[in-house]
Every structure is written in structure tokens, then in C-alpha cells.
Design a protein around this nucleic acid. Structure first.
Lengths: 213, 213
DNA sequence: TGTTTAATTAGACAAATTCTAAATAATGTG
DNA sequence: CACATTATTTAGAATTTGTCTAATTAAACA
């Protein structure tokens, strides 16, 4: 039976040493290449098609944003196992969404890592407990924020203009409305979002990406 | 001649494996203990006093904020070598300021790591090239942003309260001043910062870290 | 077809802000 | 020390902005 072939793509030297040390002891796993950046990885993938690419493409941008696409282009049969140095939920969500097979963080222990490699090679998905909890949290915390923006289109326009620093009169001029209309909209918005001041509205708009700070 | 004694304190299993693998091959270096969190470390330090503690106390908070102080308390002669998974300049500055001997990032290669350990054991300081560049940048990039905040202390207070959503009257009550005082401060602030609306002031405060969004 | 939601507006009144002007204390400069 | 600058403070009048109450129109919905 063929061992599982692995390409190791991680910018951190120590992680590569650690993983190699771990896998060298396993008869069913063989590292066929090691890359410390996207260029290395591309060259390796041109010549071989590993079962699994173990990748840390976050934290430092050594592997570029399109690294996953590149891997699929050069070696469509390869599975991708992320071992991330980044604990940020949003980044983890983004990466999982972009279609990796498995996801570990660097806090994982030997057992989880080896299980993950073997599962990934079989085409299964594997998430370490920490990441799994994040996923569950995202999927089931729907009661909390099922409401990304309960604002009507018109209200959104008003919020944006308010956050840009416009006062009611200016907004009224821009939208060709009465100032009273703007006041009413603004009051309704604040009520919906449970805000009590214009400044809070500005902060809401910034944190929700309605305007660029 | 005695080998350099090391305690390895890192929450990441792979980093510990990698470092151990690296150091086991060196005759002049001996790992006398391994800790994956602050509690482990404390127990180790009660029983031994290593030449060097290799520590990652950032990223995850496994080692607590006062870990450096703890090390100095339990084992004053030990030197601290940080191998950080965190690339954030501000965090790096903060850690260096708090008095560690040496600082590497996890991007460093074998040579830098071994040099760092040997230098640190001798009581020297060692910073990897990346960190060194950060330090230089901080020390010599004074012409660029000599002006982090041209606001007077009082004006800063006012900005914060404005950004928190308070109106002039509330701020006046909080600071025990006349509303007119607040108006004047606010006008001066906006003039200094070349802002034309309260919303812009809020955004200024957020982007400059005066308030947490 | 009635009901809900979105969008719109006015008038009276209340509140917040601007403008003009100025006083005091602290700090720094020649 | 005298002078200039800056920080901090304040008032009154005039103006602007916003709130509250109430209502109309249009669209969407069941």
C-alpha cells in the first residue's frame, strides 16, 4: 500500500521541523516536498501531485491570497489541510469557506494532527475541536444576530450619509427630501438599532462596513 | 563545560517538537523542561533555574500577562528568549519594552535560533533581522509621525467623550464645566485636526484608538 | 380588502450649537 | 523680568438643529 504523500507549505521553519519530525516516524506518511513560500510551492506542484498539501497561508502573506486556487489548478486531486497560526475567527471562517478540506490550529497536539492528515488523505474533512467549536458557534448563534441589517434601503442611505458626517439638512438636499423626513428616518434607525446618539450610529456604520473609516 | 540549560515554554505543540528536535542535536544545549502553559512553567521554575527560558507568551494568552515578572521572581538568573508567533509591531514593542533579553519570530531559521540561544545564555541581547528592523523603524522614523496627537490633555478628554456618543451638555456635566467650554474645545479640536463634522471626529477617535469601536 | 411596512411631510416647541468676545493661568522666550 | 503663546475657561445673542405629535401616500401582503 502506498504511503500518503505530503507537501509541507509553511513559512515558519520551526513548524516545518516539527511536522517533519512527527511524520518521519510514521510509515504510512511520506513528505515529498517542503515549501516556505508560494513560489516554492508552485514549483513543487508542477512536478508532483501529493495526496495532501499541508498549508499555513494566513498570518504572514507568504503564500498569497490565491494559493488555494493555485493548488487546485496545478494539482486538482490534492487535498488541502490548513494548520493555521491565526486564531482569528473571521479569518478561519473565510478560509473554510474558500473550500479547504481540513483545518487545524497550531495549538493542536500530535494525535489531532495525525488523525487530520489521515482523514484528509481519504477525502474526509477534519476540524480540530477549537475550530469545530467556532463553526458550531457561527452556525447556531443565529438567535443572536440573525439580523445583519434590519434597515430599509432608504434607511441605509441615510445611515451612510450620517456616518459620512452630513447633517440632516445636507442629507435632505442630497436626497431631495424634507429635513423632517431625515429626522424621522434617523429616529427610526436609532430605535431599530437601539442606539441613543449620532456618534453611536457612526460607530455602527464603521464597524458594519457601511462606510470606510 | 556545562551545557546551556533551557526551559521551553510554548503553547504550540509543533513548535516545541521543532525546537526540541533542533536543540537535541547540539551538545552545548540541554532542554531541562517543557511547559505548555503558565502553571507548568511555574512548577518547573520552582525546581530548576535554567540559563534560558524560551517563551511564546503572546498570541494565545496561555502564559498570562505577568509571566515575565513571574520568571524573574522564581528564577532571577534566567534569561528570556521570546520566539513569537505574533508579528504585530505594537505587541512586539510592548514585549521588548517589558525587558526580555532576546526576541525572535517564528519565521526565523535554524541558524538565527541557535545564535539567539547562545547569545542569550551569555547575557547578550539578540533580535532577529525582522524584529531589528521594527526597532530601527520605531527609533528612527520620528520625522514622519512626530505628531501622534496634537491635542492638549483636556482636548483629548473631550474627544473621547464626544466619540463615546456624549453631547456637549453631558460632557459638561461629567467634567464639571460650562457647555460653552465644551463647544470651544470641540471647535478648537476640529480646527486642529481639520475636521468639519462631529462624525469625522468620531471616526478620527476610532481610527486613532482613542475609543474602542 | 383590510393590514402592515416604508417613505414621506408639517408645525410647534425644545435643545444644541455657533459666533463674538474675553478673562485667567501656565508656559516658554528673549 | 516682560512679552508672547497656549491652554483653559466662560457668557450672551443669534442661529441651527433636532424632537414630538400627527398625518398622508404608496407598496406589499395575506
Amino acid at each position: 500500500m502506498q504511503p500518503i504523500s505530503i507537501i509541507l507549505a509553511d513559512a515558519q521553519y520551526l513548524i516545518r521541523v516539527g511536522l517533519r519530525h512527527l511524520m518521519d516516524r510514521m510509515d504510512d506518511i511520506e513528505i515529498v516536498g517542503e515549501a516556505k513560500n508560494g513560489v516554492d510551492l508552485k514549483i513543487l506542484l508542477k512536478n508532483q501531485s501529493p495526496d495532501v498539501v499541508i498549508l499555513d497561508h494566513l498570518q504572514t502573506n507568504n503564500f498569497g491570497n490565491d494559493v488555494l486556487k493555485k493548488i487546485k489548478d496545478f494539482s486538482p486531486k490534492s487535498k488541502v489541510l490548513i494548520i493555521s497560526s491565526d486564531d482569528d475567527k473571521t479569518n478561519i471562517y473565510k478560509t473554510i469557506e474558500s473550500g479547504v478540506n481540513s483545518f487545524l490550529t497550531k495549538q493542536c497536539n500530535e494525535e489531532e494532527i495525525l488523525n487530520a492528515i489521515r482523514a484528509t488523505a481519504k477525502g474526509e474533512k477534519f476540524f480540530c475541536s477549537k475550530v469545530l467549536n467556532f463553526i458550531l458557534e457561527k452556525s447556531f448563534a443565529k438567535e443572536e444576530d440573525c439580523d445583519p441589517s434590519p434597515l430599509s434601503p432608504r434607511e441605509c442611505e441615510v445611515v451612510k450619509l450620517v456616518a459620512e458626517g452630513k447633517i440632516a439638512k445636507e442629507i435632505a438636499d442630497i436626497l431631495n427630501l424634507s429635513t423632517h423626513t431625515i429626522y424621522t428616518h434617523r429616529k427610526n434607525i436609532m430605535k431599530k438599532l437601539q442606539l441613543s446618539s449620532t456618534s453611536e450610529l457612526v460607530r455602527y456604520a464603521i464597524t458594519n462596513g457601511l462606510v470606510t473609516p
